[in-house]
């Protein structure tokens, strides 16, 4: 009789704990479905549609990312993992000389990078105090992991643009960090 009561208590306790964890937002199914439903269209000399699995199968790049809004609000610092934009463009024919990469999202936001920027040149960089510093080598990536975990929707997930460096504490202008990326076009 006592064993039965104990087992009922355990079942009830586990139920309450699971309920509380769900209430506290400590479960991951939303995140999983975000990545599972996501598709990236890359339009170059050919058009390809990639899944998150396809993107993750490309060579990963890691680095430090940190950005600032036009009004001086800082986001980061983060450790970032993703795919170099040049490798992604390579899936649909690559970026030839003088071409541009147009990156857009379903919220209607668009940003354009030129070939120089794809090589990490031409960005303004700041230190932690927002004082301009000479730019270290930079890379533009499509980030899918931030601080070791899949990118959340609020942070622009499942995939967003990040400008990263090997050196921590380098801040770049946030206008290029397109959130919720779903389309990449290579244009003249």
């Amino acid at each position: 009789m006592r064993e039965m009561a104990l087992s009922r208590t355990i079942v009830l306790s586990v139920t309450i704990l699971v309920f509380s964890l769900v209430l506290a937002g400590c479960t991951a199914p939303v995140q999983d479905s975000l990545a599972a439903d996501w598709r990236l269209t890359i339009n170059g000399t050919t058009e390809k549609v990639l899944t998150m699995k396809d993107v993750r199968a490309l060579p990963p790049v890691n680095g430090h990312g940190y950005c600032v809004s036009t009004t001086g609000f800082r986001f980061g610092p983060y450790t970032c993992k993703g795919v170099d934009l040049r490798d992604l463009a390579g899936v649909a024919g690559g970026v030839g000389e003088g071409r541009q990469v147009w990156v857009s999202a379903p919220d209607g936001y668009l940003w354009v990078f030129d070939a120089d920027q794809l090589e990490g040149r031409g960005f303004v960089t700041f230190d932690e105090n927002l004082k301009e510093i000479p730019s270290p080598p930079l890379r533009i990536i499509l980030m899918y992991e931030q601080n070791g975990t899949p990118l959340t929707y609020d942070d622009g997930g499942p995939a967003r643009i990040a400008i990263i460096s090997e050196q921590p504490g380098v801040i770049t202008e946030g206008s290029a960090w397109v959130k919720w990326v779903d389309r990449i076009e290579i244009r003249e």
Partner: peptide
Amino acid sequence: PEIMRPSDDKVVIRDGSIYLLSLLSAGG
């Protein structure tokens, strides 16, 4: 053009006022 990047130091463009004003104060 799509990319507003000057070719020399005569003109400087920044994303927002605060960065311009900081350059102005520093003599940039």
